[in-house]
């Protein structure tokens, strides 16, 4: 096991956060982050599909011909999404009523196809599962943070945040905040280098 690669893969969900850095999977992020329950439910459903599609894409990466790889990946993803759909309909009907509309759309969530293409098709099963888990949890965390902030704002009486408009604006502001922190961090590193001190 290569420790460095393991660490990089495990931290992928934070350093390459799907929502704030890669800007993938925006539609469920904005549509389903009106409260924490929906955000958590959809995030975990996405993480489940991401882990299993990564594992299967990785297992089949030497079998699938290069030319038909995208349709094959989509079929694998759609299979797991259907599983989630059936599971929710049977065991969690109340959650299904609120997020059911967005479950089929996990198929077209760019994060999943993106990780299958960029990571799972090139790496072994263990790393792919870890990458799926890390990315999935990173996505869930961003969704829950966004959901929490919107929930607080709605409770404070700003009903506009329960609409799509509020979702766009909250995400835009959060992303700007994320960029701002990254800018500060980079300047800090640069300043450290100029002083001759050690880079962080």
């Amino acid at each position: 096991m290569d420790i460095k690669k393991l660490k990089e893969t495990a931290l992928g969900g934070i350093l390459n956060n799907p929502v704030f850095v890669l800007v993938l999977g925006m539609c469920p992020t904005i549509g389903m982050s009106t409260n924490v329950t929906n955000a958590l439910g959809l995030g975990l459903a996405t993480a489940f599909v991401l882990v299993f599609s990564n594992v299967f894409v990785s297992l089949l990466r030497k079998v699938i011909p290069d030319k038909v790889r995208l349709p094959s990946y989509i079929i694998i993803i759609a299979t797991f999404v259907t599983l989630v759909q059936l599971f929710l309909a049977k065991f969690l009907p109340s959650l299904n009523a609120s997020i059911g509309r967005f479950i089929p759309l996990i198929v077209v969530n760019c994060i999943i196809l993106g990780r299958a293409e960029a990571f799972a098709s090139k790496n072994s099963v263990g790393y792919s599962a870890l990458d799926g888990l890390s990315m999935g949890l990173g996505f869930t965390c961003s969704l829950v943070i966004l959901g929490g902030i919107r929930m607080l704002l709605i409770a404070a009486g700003f009903s506009v945040f329960s609409t799509a408009a509020g979702g766009f604006i909250t995400l835009g502001l959060l992303m700007a905040l994320f960029n701002f922190i990254m800018l500060l961090y980079r300047n800090h590193v640069k300043a450290g280098l100029l002083k001759g001190g050690e880079a962080l």
């Binding site: 408009a165 979702g167 766009f168 700007a176």
Partner: peptide, 23 residues
């Protein structure tokens, strides 16, 4: 545009304002 807003954040905020207009 202020540096942290360049790119996606400002686009999202514009979309938000458009969405408010459409509502």
């Amino acid at each position: 545009i202020p540096a942290p807003f360049v790119g996606f954040p400002i686009a999202l905020i514009i979309a938000g304002i458009l969405a408010m207009a459409f509502s």
